[in-house]
Amino acid sequence: MDQPALTSRFTLAYAYKRSLGPVIGAFMTGLRDRRILGARTADGRVIVPARAYDPASGEPTGDLVEVGPSGVIETVSHVAQPSPTDPVQVPFAWALIRLDGADTSFLHVVEGSAEALHRGLRVTARWRAERDGSLRDIEAFVP
């Protein structure tokens, strides 16, 4: 092409509204009230976050059970340089956390340096002061 290309910016932006239904709604309500809820499956495991169904089988779950807010890091991936969209703006890690009372692990962020965070470390939720019923009501987990 001997002529300059025609280039244009284009933004796709929309604020989707997510209705939650009874169980996801209960989980988010719990977060707002500083409680983390799991759900008990037919075979007695507690899955976190609470869902109306067992992810393994699709079969309905039963009672909601409070778990955490502390637990143990199962797997951790450290981020030295947070991006503006990351939940925290200090060195942190993405982590799978086995909350006390849960049989599955829960994805969230843990604040701390690469040296400080490791598998097996006990961490606890630090709640945001202003909470509206979303995963970001937990600001981060901390040792």
Binding site: T7, R9, A13, Y14, R18, S19, L20, G25, M28, R32
Partner: peptide
């Protein structure tokens, strides 16, 4: 809590 907003934004450059 019965709902939340989920803002999404994707920037494209089209030639």
């Amino acid at each position: 809590v019965t709902r939340f907003k989920a803002p999404t934004r994707l920037d494209y450059t089209v030639t």
